[in-house]
Design a binder for these strands. Sequence first.
DNA 1: GAGTGGTCTAGACCACCCT
DNA 2: GGGTGGTCTAGACCACTCC
Lengths: 253, 253
Amino acid sequence: MNTRVLTQNGSPLHEVVRAEISRRIADGIYKPGDAIMSTAQLGEEFGVSSITVKRALRDLQSAGVLTSIPGKGTFVKDRRRFIREVDVCMSSQDDARRHGFDTKIELVSITKERITDPALGVFNVPSKVLLCVRKVIYADGVPIMYDSSYVPTHIADEIVDEFGELYIVDALRRHNVDIEDVSIIIDASPASADAQRIFSVPNGYPTLRRLYDIKSKDPAMFVIGIVESPFDRLACSVKLNSLQLSKMTKARK
Amino acid sequence: MNTRVLTQNGSPLHEVVRAEISRRIADGIYKPGDAIMSTAQLGEEFGVSSITVKRALRDLQSAGVLTSIPGKGTFVKDRRRFIREVDVCMSSQDDARRHGFDTKIELVSITKERITDPALGVFNVPSKVLLCVRKVIYADGVPIMYDSSYVPTHIADEIVDEFGELYIVDALRRHNVDIEDVSIIIDASPASADAQRIFSVPNGYPTLRRLYDIKSKDPAMFVIGIVESPFDRLACSVKLNSLQLSKMTKARK
DNA sequence: GAGTGGTCTAGACCACCCT
DNA sequence: GGGTGGTCTAGACCACTCC
């Protein structure tokens, strides 16, 4: 039949379909929140098999443009809730409020385990069993961060409890822990298995991660952890003023 | 035939296959640089169609674990060359050297165009036509950054030339441009079309981006731009010492 | 020519949602 | 029951590589 339509410009068919659907979204033909046509309809319109359409739609899901709900349809993701101005240092509740977000923290689990995530290997991680506090942070009801933090097992129970309810720096500050040094590494990564489930994103979905290593004056007290966020829900901002810049310039001479 | 093997634990077949291949890589059965078995062989071994195997392999490519070369085979990506300690502020040549990397800059193009990338909309971008300098930065022969920077069209030609050869802050410093303020936004994103081509990564591949807005004391001189890097080749690091931290704590009271 | 991965299709089945 | 997206397969073709 229509088998020989083929690849207008050398691109595979699924890319052509993907590009056309992207165009329609960019042009506002398909609007955020709306359902687009079914795979069968699109296949007929483009003269390709519905499987090829599905392939194109799946790629657009990986790109954060579409969401498919089995049995209902495929929808254009609404406004990319691009939360800016989140400070690069550990976020605090104040920080969030200052930017007008109603945040909520949900404790996922408190377990005893070793650090196994190879990503944290960039820090000098102890091989001992540590206390692992996992939690999800919501902004306006939407999950935006998945945090796993590791602390020594011997720390006071009251601090542990607060770790589940508070931002880390807030909890430490409350107990007058003297933070001496903070290393943060920011990177991107495909969503972890946990993140896929928590954020309802597909395999391979890009996420922004912050790996942190907080050292206090007491060598027995430290916090190591990792925060993961879907790329379309969070970004980090850094501001450098002229004072800092001149310092940097000098330091480099 | 083997049609009814099916989904050991409720997971789709392609996920089962993907997990098993991941396990073999983690266990060192498939080693970095090595070719894994062909899709046909894997399909036979697992009792699934080769198409399902291909699906699993494609997902592992999106995750940066495998690379397939048509006609040759599918290979385990060698050591994740995770370049750490790259400062969050604009990288300079010194910076790179200090970390032991032999970097090279390749000019891609110098064009006159407006800023159309919606990502840069977070800054207050002028709608005028600007000079756009695009370049690729290599470390040890591997492309690690794709930089697009926009500057006013009226700036001196000699600076423009150097933009193609130098890191941005290096070029500005050389011409004694007084940098007043730098805003940087770090986010993750699926690879752009350019990035896919330059870094040889598939559609949807997670990248780390740095969007920058450099303001000088002269309002007519500014640089706005965006740097994109594959997630497995670059990360940013931030270090905060106790002085900065105490300042922050005070500021928040 | 044999082997590889990439693409495309037709056809089937499933789980889910809505009416 | 009819629609939706998700999965899986068999079979076909292509471009590529290596021998």
